[in-house]
């Protein structure tokens, strides 16, 4: 009885030592968690989460300061991914943070006065043009963050939802008809 106890204790101690060593030996530099979270975030850089971009939000989540349901562009799937990554429960969006359909910004070429205000606002440099020249959105790079919309003094920027086209059409999940026949 006593021997068994001693053996157990010895084993526990040994395992503890191994684990302790491993955690020192294999410690990863930097903050990989924040980076992993950042990899899951949609990179829209819109600031809707209350942080000035995806990376700061990722850092905040990693530090435990922010909830996982604050990023509307990521959609429910994004929350699911975060929940899975962090091993926490899924949390639905709050009232004021509902995801919207994806969109890209569009500048009305006729109205734009070339004030560069939107260029300064765009987090991903998706607006091309120089001072006093008309500006254009580079559609393929626009994340749809809407940050360029308020600064425009002549309100020439509008958000166009991305429509389903032949080129981005997706096959649907097959409808499973099991229940209908009962």
């Amino acid at each position: 009885m006593i021997t068994a106890l001693w053996i157990m204790i010895a084993l526990a101690a040994l395992l503890g030592m191994i684990l302790g060593y491993a955690s020192i030996r294999f410690r990863v530099e930097g903050n990989p968690l924040a980076e992993k979270i950042d990899a899951v975030l949609p990179q829209t850089q819109c600031g809707q989460c209350g942080y000035p971009g995806c990376k700061p939000y990722a850092d905040a989540i990693a530090k435990g300061e922010a909830d996982i349901n604050l990023c509307p562009p990521g959609g429910e799937e994004g929350i699911h991914k975060l929940a899975e990554l962090l091993g926490v429960e899924f949390k639905p969006f709050g009232e004021d943070a509902q995801p919207k359909p994806k969109a890209v910004a569009f500048i009305d070429e006729q109205i734009c006065i070339g004030c560069t205000l939107c260029i300064q606002a765009c987090p991903v440099d998706a607006i091309a043009g120089a001072a006093k020249q008309m500006h254009t959105i580079i559609t393929s790079e626009c994340t749809g963050c809407e940050l360029c919309v308020p600064p425009c003094p002549v309100d020439c920027i509008s958000m166009l939802p991305i429509e389903e086209k032949l080129t981005n059409w997706k096959w649907r999940y097959p409808v499973f008809e099991l229940r209908q026949t009962s």
Binding site: L41, V124, W169
Partner: peptide
Amino acid sequence: YYRYAKSEIRARDHEKRAADLARERHEFR
């Protein structure tokens, strides 16, 4: 089911690439 999975995977790849690009451009900015 396969067509569904394939187009989902393609769409996700596309989104992922777009996100990576956005991250890169944001960092560059």
